[in-house]
Simulated assay, not measured.
Amino acid sequence: MTMTSKTGKLAATLLATALCAGFTSGAWAQAASGVNAASAGTAETGSAGNSNGGGLPQIEQQGEVSYTSGGVGLDESRALLREQAHWPLSLRFTGPTADYLSGVHVRIVGGKGGEVLSTESMGPYMLVKLPPGNYTVYAKYKDQEKKQAVSVSGPGKAKAAFHWNIQ
């Protein structure tokens, strides 16, 4: 074997090793950050596995309103309950025998009749950042809509619980 042949083989081996190391470290970084390799690069809007740290589900934005919802897993439930003191409005959705519900359509209307939020909950808890004021919260589960008036005055102050006797 000539020196050029050995150098070429060595360079090819080093290149292959570097590429493998790069791919491996990328997969490791995705795993460490909680990104599923199958969904990497997709815009996931669900709360499972898409957290802002400490188990809190992804914070969404609609117009001037920020919100997050979830609470299906124990870590997420604890994070949402812990964080409700920092959010102006906290909502809870339950069904028969205090079962937690998800898939509740939530609409929040301001005091002057303008809709400020329209979304679907990803779990039994929803936290909403609204400016101080009076609002009406409409929560619809299956075909039953309920409403409650809330007065938002600051973080951790306004809470509303919605309960349905249907499954």
Rank of each mutant, 00 (worst) to 15 (best):
I166H: 11
G71E: 05
W164N: 00
A27R: 02
T24D: 01
S121E: 07
L81V: 10
K9I: 04
M3S: 14
L14T: 05
L56K: 10
A158V: 14
V137P: 07
E145W: 03
S77K: 12
S47F: 01
G63H: 01
T94R: 09
F93H: 03
A149R: 10
I166E: 11
P132G: 06
H105I: 07
V35H: 04
L127F: 13
A31P: 04
H163N: 11
P96T: 14
M126S: 09
S90E: 09
S77N: 02
T24S: 06
K112W: 08
E76V: 02
V65R: 00
K9Y: 10
K146W: 03
S25G: 04
K147N: 15
V116G: 01
H86E: 14
T42Q: 15
Y67L: 05
V106N: 01
Q144D: 13
Y100S: 10
N165A: 03
M1L: 08
A48F: 13
G110A: 15
A27H: 12
G49L: 02
A79M: 02
L56Q: 14
S90D: 06
S102N: 07
T17A: 11
S77Y: 14
P132S: 14
E145I: 08
R107Q: 08
A158R: 13
I108T: 00
L89S: 01
G46P: 11
K6N: 14
F23E: 04
K9R: 08
T97C: 11
A38N: 07
L117I: 01
A79Q: 05
S66M: 06
S118R: 07
G95Y: 10
I59H: 02
W87M: 03
V152C: 00
P131N: 14
G53Y: 05
V150E: 00
G54M: 05
Q148T: 10
F23H: 05
G53N: 08
S77I: 06
P96L: 12
L101M: 12
Y135F: 04
W164C: 03
D143S: 12
M126R: 05
G41A: 00
G154Q: 05
T136M: 10
V65G: 02
D143T: 10
S69N: 05
N134H: 07
A37V: 12
L74I: 09
S66E: 05
A12H: 01
G133D: 02
G34K: 07
Q144I: 02
A43T: 07
S118A: 15
E60P: 13
A27W: 13
K147Y: 09
D143R: 09
A160C: 03
A38Y: 09
L80C: 08
M126A: 09
G54R: 10
A32V: 04
L10F: 11
A161V: 12
A11D: 08
T7P: 07
S39M: 04
G22P: 06
E115S: 09
N36F: 15
N165Y: 00
D143V: 12
A98C: 10
L81K: 10
K9V: 15
